[in-house]
Design a protein around this nucleic acid. Sequence first.
DNA 1: TTCATTTAAACTATAATGTACTAAAATATC
DNA 2: GATATTTTAGTACATTATAGTTTAAATGAA
Lengths: 234, 234
Amino acid sequence: MKALENYLPYIEQPKILVATDCIVFGFDEGILKLLVFRRRIDPFKGEWSLIGSFVNEEESVPDAARRVLLQFTGLENIFLEELKAYSDVDRDSGARCISIAQYALIRINDYDREQVELHGAKWFALEDVPHLVLDHNTMIADALDRLRQKTTHKPIGFELLPEKFTIPQLQSLYEAIHQTKLDDRNFRKKLLSFDLLIKLNEKDKSTSKKGAFLYRFDYDKYKKLEESGFNFVL
Amino acid sequence: MKALENYLPYIEQPKILVATDCIVFGFDEGILKLLVFRRRIDPFKGEWSLIGSFVNEEESVPDAARRVLLQFTGLENIFLEELKAYSDVDRDSGARCISIAQYALIRINDYDREQVELHGAKWFALEDVPHLVLDHNTMIADALDRLRQKTTHKPIGFELLPEKFTIPQLQSLYEAIHQTKLDDRNFRKKLLSFDLLIKLNEKDKSTSKKGAFLYRFDYDKYKKLEESGFNFVL
DNA sequence: TTCATTTAAACTATAATGTACTAAAATATC
DNA sequence: GATATTTTAGTACATTATAGTTTAAATGAA
């Protein structure tokens, strides 16, 4: 640790506030949803906003996001990845503040409903998201682009489904994210060809009489494959 | 503009310094290079470091990076993209400081040699990059990963070559970035199949007797294709 | 000059994969 | 048994990947 006087040039630096905002995706009955909340304090009291917070002195940016997510949803250990920094000088009319946006994927049935309501948060279908404060709508658009890109190259879609899911469910998720209709036979063929799904001896009968077999994603196997250069592409 | 008192909660926030560091890639005679410099002031005086700066109150993060790049290389209008934020609480032992790293691709023959030397900066081949301050070596590793990923999906490799380049040159660039040997016939075929290169009536004879035709990348055409959903994959 | 050499460039054949579509069997519910 | 959805099988066709062969252009050595 160097002597503090070495850091004098640091201390003279301008004060720029550092925040993080979370674009929280959920998937419910074929529809992609986003969690936003109505602000209860100024500035922007009463307006819709992404959930977020200033970054505290004793936490990293992802830690701040995890804190916010726990607070609003009661969930821990969820998928979280940095989107990008928003730093335009006049993005926040009240203060010089940059926000490092992160996007999160949650299993929508797991969250704590009380916790969510307690904070005035609400799920909106993607197309129904209202006007949000500052540049938050831009953040959502950017996050969606990223989600589309990422889901085709990494198996992160599973983060939006229950641990046990059916192939038709996964397909409908991909169709919702990419706004397309996929061929069910080819989707199944390609997906199973990776040999990364573990077929269970259970069926989900909520959407059909016949019922569809439940699967689990084999994370361990995927990790090993990825290390040896395997490329997931859906 | 809201009344300032609305922003009181902003003002009470902790002071976290915001910096940006630039991972500057160049390509010279088949070798991928990085620009780093020897710090001339404390903290870390005399140590090797990425070029960077604190972000000023009246500039965005990319603006700060562009300022630094202009200062060190004399270049404007160069490819610059955000890598990610580095925000570990103890990443800088002297102050709480986050850095939003950006990577830049420059045409290595264009930079201002005087400007570079003036600031104590130096090009290192990728494998010869020395130990740098803080987490800067990690930033480089991350930037390289990103560059590999990005060059296969977006035509940004051209940013590292002169405006006029040959196909063998481009191939050697891709080989340097991805550390592989590519099949020259297939590389050429795939590349030309996009119909995005404009063949010139000139040859570059610096590397062979026969000489290879020079090409220019058709940015305008690419922009249009991209908008209509075209996907570049090399 | 002729010829061997080198790199670039074009052309070609075959295998592998992706895509679209047809058919039908399986499984539960009513 | 009628019905709806899931699941398997298979096939025709287009596209792409991979690799073999050939031609072309320039150069320097014999």
